[in-house]
């Protein structure tokens, strides 16, 4: 049984999706189908330091989100995680399967592998792990942003 009781934000780990370098930075729990996340994404990426992306798809609000997060994971297996995330937020109207295939080809990914990976149990488990860590930390909406060093909440007006 999964334990979803309260727990502090998990510190940045070796298998987190991290953009940029340095100790300082932000951890963001984000939904790839969320317009508020899309609106904040550029700003978050322009901040100095590292940016840690954690999956928080809420299918009830954004039915395509689980598929988009799985696609990002699959792209990540071939070194293109953030390319996929950037593209999904930049082109929010292009999120159907053919659009994902087109992106995979544009990023030079092995399409067959991408297809298999995005439907794999491993990708789903990886997304779920982040989601559940967010639940345990009390994430109640996206984007939810935390300081990567102090693990304290960062309010939207601060980023």
């Amino acid at each position: 049984m999964n334990d979803l009781t309260s727990a502090p934000i998990a510190p940045v780990g070796a298998d987190d999706h991290v953009r940029g370098e340095g100790e300082e930075g932000l951890i963001v729990y984000a939904d790839l189908g969320c317009p508020r996340c899309a609106a904040s994404w550029q700003r978050l990426c322009e901040r100095p330091g590292r940016l840690v992306f954690r999956h928080f798809p809420v299918a009830g609000k954004h039915p395509r989100s689980p598929a988009l997060h799985a696609a990002a994971e699959a792209a990540g297996r071939q070194g293109s995680f953030f390319e996929m995330v950037d593209s999904l937020y930049a082109e929010r109207g292009r999120v159907d399967d053919p659009h994902l295939w087109e992106r995979a080809e544009r990023f030079g990914l092995d399409l067959e592998r991408f297809q298999a990976d995005r439907r794999s149990d491993e990708a789903a488990a990886r997304v779920k792990r982040d989601f559940q860590s967010g639940i345990r930390a009390g994430v109640a909406g996206t984007p939810a942003v935390f300081d990567a060093c102090t693990l304290q909440t960062v309010r939207e007006r601060e980023f």
Partner: peptide, 19 residues
Amino acid sequence: PVCGDQFSIYQEVKPEIAE
């Protein structure tokens, strides 16, 4: 908006609550 977030997130963990 907040109510929508509340029930959407609870829906995601409904199986675990049912357990």
